[in-house]
Each structure stands twice: as C-alpha cells, then as structure tokens.
Design a protein around this nucleic acid. Structure first.
Length: 325
RNA sequence: GGGUCGGUAGCUCAGUCGGUAGAGCACGGGACUGAAAAUCCCGGUGUCGACAGUUCGAUUCUGUCCUGACCCA
C-alpha cells in the first residue's frame, strides 16, 4: 500500500503521525500538464485534488478555463471547481476558506491532499495566510472608480500620497487596482497596507507541504498553448461564450474580462475577426504563462520537474513523507 | 548567358544626402497579500548578405562574389 502524505496518521500502522497536514502542491504555467499529472498522482497516493485556479471556480466557464473533464473529475474528486456563478465575487480569501474546509474534510477521511493550480497568489495565501486586513468593500471601490472618471487617474494616487505616502512609494501611479486597495485599507484601519504587509510576509504556516513545479522549454510550452487554444475553438469555445451571454453574463462579470472570454465576446459582438480572436487569445495566454513563471521563479520552495518525470515526482512525494516517519 | 529589383531584429519592412539604425508583429525581464487568467513597470533583442576599394569614418558610395524573385534569351 502506498503512503498517504496527506494523512494524519502516516505511515499507516506504525503509530507515527504527521503532526500537521502535509499538502502536495503542484503548480506551474498554464498548459504545462498539471491536471494530468495530478490525477495520476492522486490515484497512486489515494488522494483528492483541490484546484488552486482563480477561473475554474466559476460555473459555466468550462472550455475556456481548460477545466478538468467530467470523466477526470469522476476518476478523482476535485474541490473548489464550479463554486460560484460568473457574476459573483470570488477572491483569495474565499479560496483560503474553502480550501481549509476541503483539507479538513480530506484529513478526516485519510485522503492525501493535492493542491493543484497556477494561481500563485491563492497558493501563497493558503500556505502563508492572508493579511490581517479588511476584505473588499464594493461600495467604497465603486466610489473610487467614479472619482477616477470625474477627476482623472492622478487624483486617487494623489490622495494616496497624502494619506499613505509609504504605500504610494511602492505602488506605481498607473496601478489603479493597488492604489484603490491601499486607500481602502487606510480608510478602514487607518494603517498603511505596505506596513501591514511588511509585518506579515506570508509567515503563517498552517500546513507542511511539498511544492512541485512543472516546467518545460519555453518554445515547446508556447506551441502547446497555441494548440490548446485551437482545440478550445474546435470544442465550441464560441458557443460557450454565446451561451454565457444569453445567460446574462456579459463583460461586466469579472471572469468575462479575462483574456479568453474577453476576446470571445469581442468576436461575438463583431468587434474583431475570428482570426484576431484566436491570435489574441493565444498571445495573451502565452504572456500569462510568462507572468506565472516570473511569479514562481522567485519561490525557493518549488522543486522543479519536467511533466514526464512522473516517477521522480512520485519518489519526491514519497520521500517527503518519509521525513515524518 | 544578359537584364531589373531585392538581401537590415525571430517575421514583414522602413531608414541612413557617409558619423555603427527603427516601426509593427513576435519576444525578453520584473512587480504582485481580499479583482491575480486581474493590475502594472522596464527592455530593441542587430556582423545592416560576404570580401575588397575610396574615405578620418562605409550599413549607406564603387567593384567583385554569394543569394532570392522576376523579365529577356
């Protein structure tokens, strides 16, 4: 019988226990092959999968998010997929909450836990905890957005410079999302988000974990991404976009503003040709993969493998577990 | 065989009246703590086909060669 790295009582039978949950994290750029590997490992180690993907949480966004198929989800149960409608709010904090619940659930059933996905922030938030700061304030953000429309983009940044010069020194004047977040935190707590971040630094460590990164030659990865986009089109990506519009999920829903659906909607509305849609989805997905690599590269915890090194990865998962035996 | 027009970034091309070059696309690097497939910052990545000549200096002018397209034989 294989070891259960996520189980409370590993290894089974010898009375030694893993003091804290041990997670197996599998990450890497989009299209590298995380899903296949994770399913195979989950079968080998009798585990289940927690998806760490900020887009697969939305219902009805199936083809464009490369969501695991129903057959794949039948083979291995996936958690935190299809948990909200596309027009509902979702964020890193909600992910952490759901992931903690799922981990508890799996621990109780002696299942190993595979956290699989390419959303680096979600993984960091799960493993390191989020700031002790207030959550998103939709009304306040709306007010800020209106002020930008009236007074121009420099106005809000100017306010930030007055109220929180420390954060203004770190946030670029053009980065509206972070400017608004910093003002929001200041408004609610009177504290500088930059200061809070410095004190925090993702230092909570609720779980032990092994982080496995999948990587491959950049050119090969880009070729895979291009082909996957062609396949999405063949599989009916445009039909999926039309269905979503019929359901009332237009570009005012956040996930519909992400690279894939943004371009599908633009095509359906006649704003761009089919060729441009495909070209842009491919390009933006390649750029996304590059941004992911930038994020993961600086993480010293990640042990990197090629996707086909399944045996080595399997041994790494096992050996990590043996540390606790 | 003769002629015409080309050969400049990964691609398509512009340009330099002689002072080592720039657009689009493609691409590279970075930031990131409650929107993260979001948001934002930085970067031209080059033997200007090769060799010689003229010149203080040649990617630019001249010659020869290589090479591609087309035209005439």
């Amino acid at each position: 019988m294989k070891a259960l790295p996520g189980s409370k009582n590993f290894p089974a039978g010898d009375g030694l226990a893993c003091k804290r949950p041990c997670l197996v994290v599998i990450t890497g750029p989009t299209g590298v092959g995380k899903t296949n590997l994770a399913i195979s490992l989950a079968e080998e180690f009798q585990g289940e999968i927690i998806s760490a993907d900020s887009m697969q949480v939305y219902r009805y966004l199936d083809i464009g998010t490369a969501k695991p198929s129903t057959e794949e989800q039948f083979r291995i149960p996936h958690h935190i997929i299809d948990v909200v409608d596309p027009d509902k709010e979702f964020n890193a904090a909600m992910f952490v909450e759901l992931a903690n619940e799922a981990i508890n659930f799996l621990q109780e059933r002696q299942k190993s836990v595979f956290v699989v996905g390419g959303t680096g922030l979600y993984i960091n938030a799960l493993l390191g905890g989020l700031l002790d700061a207030p959550g998103a304030d939709g009304l306040l953000r709306e007010r800020y957005r209106k002020e930008v429309l009236i007074y121009g983009k420099d106005y809000l940044y100017g306010r930030l410079k007055e109220m929180d010069p420390e954060s203004a020194g770190v946030i670029h004047p053009n980065d509206l999302v972070r400017t608004i977040r910093a003002l929001e935190v200041m408004e609610h707590t009177g504290k500088s988000i930059t200061k809070i971040q410095g004190e925090h630094g993702f230092k909570n460590r609720p779980y032990d974990y092994i982080k496995i990164g999948l990587s491959m030659d950049r050119g090969v990865l880009y070729e895979k991404i291009n082909k996957r986009v062609d396949r999405m089109i063949d599989d009916g990506l445009v039909d999926e976009g039309e269905r979503l519009l019929e359901m009332g999920y237009d570009e005012s829903s956040l996930p519909m503003q992400a690279m894939t659906y943004r371009n599908v909607i633009s095509y359906i509305k006649g704003d761009q040709s089919s060729e441009d849609m495909i070209r842009l989805i491919k390009r933006e997905t390649r750029h996304y993969a590059r941004r992911q690599l930038t994020w993961f590269r600086r993480d010293p915890d990640i042990k990197w493998f090629a996707p086909e090194d399944e045996n080595m990865i399997s041994r790494a998962v096992n050996s990590r577990v043996l540390v606790y035996s």
